[in-house]
């Protein structure tokens, strides 16, 4: 497997950054960045990362299921993550999450038929003082309301 030139340079640098012989340290970052590029973590990707970091595929597979941002199945082009943890709960995070389900017509960890959107109820994302908060892919959206959410999603729908 090969990745985009940018990613290849990033990985080359990454493997350099850890102490000598500690390439295993690159496993998780590599999975994260590779996932962003190829969409999800396939067996093939696991074998590839194992090869690059000089570990066994099992050692890579072990971490995949541990970290909630690593996904074995492809997400939507826009991954909508709604926090319902305490601060968001108190400020309408749950209702926001229900609204997102209605708006997108999908449930937790599901993907829309057209593959454009996926939805996930997530834990505290470190935006508590500007709750309720959501993330679409890596972008934060603070002080959310149902209306703002609808606008955001409509905007993204149009964007295509």
């Amino acid at each position: 497997m090969t990745f985009s030139p940018e990613l290849e340079t990033k990985f080359a640098k990454m493997l350099e950054s850890y102490p000598p012989g500690r390439t295993r340290s690159a496993v998780i970052p590599m999975l994260m960045y590779a996932q962003d590029e190829v969409g999800c973590i396939s067996h093939e990707l696991i074998e590839e990362v194992a090869r690059r970091c000089k570990v066994t595929p099992l050692q890579v597979n072990e971490v995949v299921g541990f970290y909630s941002m690593l996904h074995r199945k492809p997400l939507g082009k826009y991954h909508v993550q709604v926090c319902t943890n305490i601060s968001c709960l108190l400020t309408g995070g749950e209702e926001l999450y229900e609204q997102a389900q209605k708006k997108l017509g999908i449930g937790n960890k599901e993907v829309t038929a057209d593959g454009q959107f996926s939805l996930e109820e997530v834990e505290c994302m470190g935006a508590c003082s500007w709750a309720p908060a959501i993330q679409i892919n890596y972008d934060f959206h603070h002080n959310m309301t149902a209306e703002k959410l609808d606008k955001l999603i409509d905007g993204l729908r149009k964007a295509q």
Partner: peptide, 9 residues
């Protein structure tokens, strides 16, 4: 052999 590991959380 290291053939067994732990997955998920």
């Amino acid at each position: 052999m290291n053939a067994l590991g732990v997955i998920n959380r």
